[in-house]
């Protein structure tokens, strides 16, 4: 099953990404100032037909299953409890973050992640409390998609996968590698399923307000999400323009 997935993904990675030849702004507007990020890539979507179909499917699954579960979770568990859950999940992602920090040659972040895991697993009661953060060891999200991105691998075409959601060929490969290399995915099947289920619910709960807002303000949510996903990943790979302060999770 996994092998098949890999073949599919590597085939997708070979698909040419349409680079839009026409200038976006047109001659009628002033010249684009140099500060504006070159933006053609966020609208390249050779698999759009397929993607929109899967997007609709995911939306349905979300409406009937995931969103109600996330709302129930928010209503049933007070913020304090949800924060503990979020911290524990972050702690469990430490091996993946560590491995990728090492692969990226980021010595500081590698040590920080290692000590975060040691401190939070012990003093932080199995990761429930992020005491390492208080001590100045900040969490950061690193994954294999970012790692190979940093070494110059392009994102490949944008793909929306059933259940998994927005990704690119590169990030899908990255996700598979991270899953295989994550030691916590070799616990008992029941434990693995539990961790991953809680992770999904936790993530969706954190997105409740954001998604409500998108549904209210956006004209074409599919395109909005694609654009934001691609910009967000590019920003993560740059670690927020070269600064090493970037993180997109931590205190949930």
């Amino acid at each position: 099953m996994l092998k098949k997935g890999f073949t599919l993904i590597s085939m997708l990675a070979l698909l040419p990404v349409n680079s839009f030849a026409e200038d976006d702004i047109g001659k009628s507007a002033e010249e684009v100032p140099a500060v504006i990020i070159a933006a053609q890539e966020v609208d390249a979507d050779p698999l759009e037909g397929f993607n929109r179909g899967v997007y609709k499917f995911n939306e349905t699954v979300d409406n009937i299953l995931l969103e109600p579960v996330a709302r129930t979770y928010r209503a049933a568990i007070p913020k304090w409890g949800r924060e503990r859950v979020g911290n524990a999940l972050n702690n469990l992602s430490s091996p993946v973050v560590f491995a990728n920090s090492v692969l990226q040659g980021d010595v500081d972040q590698s040590f920080a992640t290692f000590w975060r895991f040691v401190i939070n697993s012990t003093l932080g009661v199995g990761g429930l409390f992020d005491v390492a953060k208080e001590a100045g060891l900040k969490p950061r999200k690193e994954d294999f998609g970012q790692t190979i991105g940093k070494y110059g691998v392009g994102s490949g075409p944008y793909i929306v996968l059933p259940f998994i959601g927005p990704t690119t060929a590169r990030d899908a490969v990255g996700k598979a590698v991270d899953s295989i290399s994550n030691p916590f995915n070799y616990l008992t099947p029941a434990a693995v399923v539990t961790i991953n289920t809680v992770d999904v619910v936790d993530e969706r709960e954190g997105l409740l307000d954001t998604i409500d807002e998108i549904e209210e303000t956006s004209f074409d949510p599919y395109s909005t999400i694609r654009s934001a996903y691609i910009q967000h990943r590019a920003n993560l790979i740059r670690n927020g323009e070269g600064s090493s302060e970037k993180e997109n999770w931590g205190s949930k």
């Binding site: 979300d62 990704t167 899953s179 999904v200 934001a228």
Partner: peptide, 10 residues
């Protein structure tokens, strides 16, 4: 495979 939220982190 970590089944992620279909609407995910984007």
């Amino acid at each position: 495979m970590r089944i992620k939220a279909c609407v995910c982190c984007i």
